[in-house]
């Protein structure tokens, strides 16, 4: 068990909990942990970057029982952490485009921390409304070298940044400039849009998938998507691989393991699974 050492309120419903754990501190961008809030439940969580020596964090949105339990863990409270699990983003050099929706920003922040000081990175953040935007400032912090960091926010209600879906902003960015790589994490239909847009222009793209996870180690099978076992083959996949996966952007396995179709293009929480809620 790890003691929570610091709690940062990112938005009314999102908190970052920091703790000390050498293995989590060293996690690669895109890796996740299985995080246990005793009495509330255990969930897969991307490992959030923390600059403190030997420290890492989780950034959690309060939603159902398990995430609310984790969200409600105060400084000094104990959480169980196993992992890190899964593969990681292939962090390229040059001009990078990061497209995140909701807590899908978490693995992208770790990726950003591994980007080179001389790389030019554009970060597109999507949210429903102004009050749900977080990591905007951290993502825009200038890098050490000659590179640049640009952040653009899209909100569905137009209360901050541009009005509309972040996929529209991604389309536009890809149309306007040349990128060496695109990375995305968030609701699956958002990622589908981003992967298609990048692939259509021949740009290398990777996305990190979310599924129901029980073991995290490739044993239980609950996280399958097509022939892929997301916790072990992924969670990060190349765009062309995803476009060949019959489940990507179409269906996920619910808690019983039965296939269910994704809902509307806005990535509304799918019934009873928490999938797409980030």
């Amino acid at each position: 068990m790890r003691a929570v050492e610091e709690v940062v309120q990112e938005t009314p419903t999102v908190r970052t909990l920091a703790f000390t754990d050498a293995a989590m501190h060293a996690a690669l961008p895109g890796q996740f942990a299985m995080v246990w809030a005793p009495g509330a439940g255990e969930l897969p969580m991307s490992v959030m970057v923390h600059r403190g020596e030997g420290k890492a964090a989780f950034t959690v949105r309060r939603h159902g029982p398990a995430s609310s339990g984790l969200f409600g863990t105060a400084v000094g409270g104990l959480i169980g952490v196993r992992g890190p699990y899964g593969n990681s983003f292939d962090v390229r050099r040059g001009r990078l485009l990061l497209v995140g929706g909701g807590t899908g920003m978490v693995p992208l922040m770790r990726l950003l921390s591994r980007a080179g000081g001389d790389d030019d990175v554009t970060v597109l953040i999507g949210a429903r409304t102004a009050g749900e935007v977080f990591f905007e400032e951290a993502a825009g912090r200038p890098p050490g070298g000659s590179g640049s960091r640009a952040v653009e926010v899209s909100t569905e209600d137009g209360s901050r940044g541009r009005k509309g879906l972040v996929t529209a902003a991604a389309e536009e960015a890809l149309g306007a400039g040349r990128f060496d790589a695109v990375y995305t994490c968030g609701p699956e239909l958002m990622m589908l849009g981003v992967v298609r847009a990048a692939t259509a222009r021949g740009v290398f793209v990777q996305a990190s998938l979310e599924r129901v996870m029980k073991c995290g180690v490739g044993m239980c099978g609950s996280c399958c998507a097509g022939a892929d076992i997301v916790c072990r083959d992924g969670t990060v996949f190349d765009g062309d691989h995803l476009l060949a996966n019959p489940d990507f952007g179409r269906s996920y396995r619910n808690k019983a393991g039965a296939p269910e179709a994704y809902g509307d293009a806005r990535g509304a929480p799918a019934p009873g699974a928490g999938i797409g809620s980030r």
Binding site: G41, C220, K255, A256, G272
Partner: peptide, 29 residues
Amino acid sequence: EPRDGYQNPTVTGVRGGGWLNAVGLSNPG
């Protein structure tokens, strides 16, 4: 009938070796 099974933690490694699980027979039916 389909079963959702139990909530996580449903699988855990055992100190000293082996695994412990109670997934609760979650299955699609």
